[in-house]
Amino acid sequence: MSRHVLTGINSATTVAIGWDRPLETFFVQVLGPHPEMEGEDEILFWRGTDLRELPTAADAIAEARNWAILPADLNATLETDRLKTLGKSDGEHQAAVKRRLFPD
């Protein structure tokens, strides 16, 4: 899994973007200050939590663009993250959980 944290367009938010190899998806997570719990974050937006939900770096970047100013090389960075995991596979327990959560 990779995770790159960026400052949001609204400086109170942070945007995490990366690659989740077990779910075979890129993800985008936006956190902001929780309105009722001092010092805690609230999830404002989260995509890439389902199997192959955001299959390309471009899909994730399109979602993140609404929340942060993105570095010009982000697509290449995310694709490199994905490519680094191509030779890895799920362990026995991880595969069992995926079969239960995402039956074919």
Rank of each mutant, 00 (worst) to 15 (best):
I9P: 02
D59R: 10
T7I: 10
T49A: 12
R100M: 14
A60C: 02
P55G: 09
R65I: 14
V5K: 13
A96G: 06
V28E: 02
I17H: 04
K98G: 11
N75L: 14
A68T: 09
P55H: 10
F102S: 10
I69T: 15
R3F: 00
L23N: 00
P22S: 02
L101Y: 11
W67Y: 15
L83I: 10
E42I: 08
W19D: 03
W67S: 12
F26V: 00
E53A: 14
T14I: 08
D50W: 12
R82Y: 04
R82P: 07
E40N: 02
A95I: 06
D41F: 02
E53L: 09
A62K: 14
G87F: 02
L31A: 08
A58E: 15
T56Y: 06
S2M: 05
S2N: 05
H34A: 01
E63H: 14
L78K: 08
F27P: 06
L44E: 02
R21T: 03
K88N: 09
M1P: 06
F26L: 01
P55W: 09
T7P: 05
W19K: 01
R47P: 05
T14F: 06
L51K: 13
G91V: 00
K88E: 05
G8P: 05
L101H: 12
K88Y: 05
D59A: 11
D90G: 05
T77Y: 04
I69P: 14
T49K: 14
W67T: 13
W46G: 05
Q94F: 02
D90W: 07
P33M: 01
S89W: 07
E53W: 07
G87W: 09
T25N: 00
I9Q: 07
P35Y: 01
G32E: 03
T49G: 15
G87Y: 03
G48E: 01
H4D: 11
